[in-house]
Design a binder for these strands. Structure first.
Lengths: 107, 107
DNA sequence: GAAATAGTTAAGTAAACGCTTCAGTGTTGG
DNA sequence: CCAACACTGAAGCGTTTACTTAACTATTTC
């Protein structure tokens, strides 16, 4: 589910925006309400909610509403999926370089 | 240089587009010319060049022109920087969960 | 040196994005 | 019950993005 390309697409798109990365950064230190997420950002609460909805649609953040406050959490599994995508490509490249090195050393 | 927030911004922005990720994926298997990068993509060569310029500006890809062909390579250091950003946030969250578990286990 | 190749650049366009404001909804405290 | 609180949703607006086409440059090849 997490490795499906559409979800990956949403995740990388979500991470592309500085405000959303700042929100993820804040959430990495612990859960927060929408207002708490909004506090350090120089934009309206409404804008923050829109960013939050994207983050949630991407799977990077899970939220839960109790009473009138929506509490937000990071979803580490989703972060790991994005991490993994990058890691695989980098390793693929580095392994290729290693093989090339071995080949040249054999000469 | 690589951890400067502006560069990180460019990297995540570059990775946000499916076509550009496909190009990175292709390059993870070895160097390629612009035309080779373009071949599997359903868009004009011109569009591919524009994507490539973004990838290069972000630091994710390095290119070098010899004669009339521009050869492209992945820059693993840049991939690692993006990977690292995500990894730090995920670990921060997971460490927090661990401490919480320890605290509850102590009771 | 003419034609094919490989890429570049500029201009234009439609759609997506990131925001704003404003008018709500549901929740809680006094 | 009513005011403050914590969001939510829709409409609108200027900017950026992802393309396109077309005209161009520089290099090979024949």
């Amino acid at each position: 589910m997490l490795h499906d390309p559409a979800q990956l697409d949403l995740m990388f798109q979500a991470l592309a925006d500085p405000a959303r990365r700042q929100m993820v950064d804040r959430l990495s230190r612990g859960p927060a309400s929408v207002s708490q997420l909004a506090e350090p950002l120089a934009m309206s609460l409404s804008a923050v909610v829109q960013h939050l909805n994207l983050l949630e649609a991407s799977g990077l953040v899970r939220t839960r509403k109790v009473g009138r406050v929506r509490t937000c959490q990071i979803e580490p599994k989703a972060l790991r999926a994005a991490e993994h995508w990058i890691n695989e490509r980098r390793l693929s490249w580095e392994r290729r370089l290693d093989r090339l090195g071995d080949f040249l050393a054999e000469g």
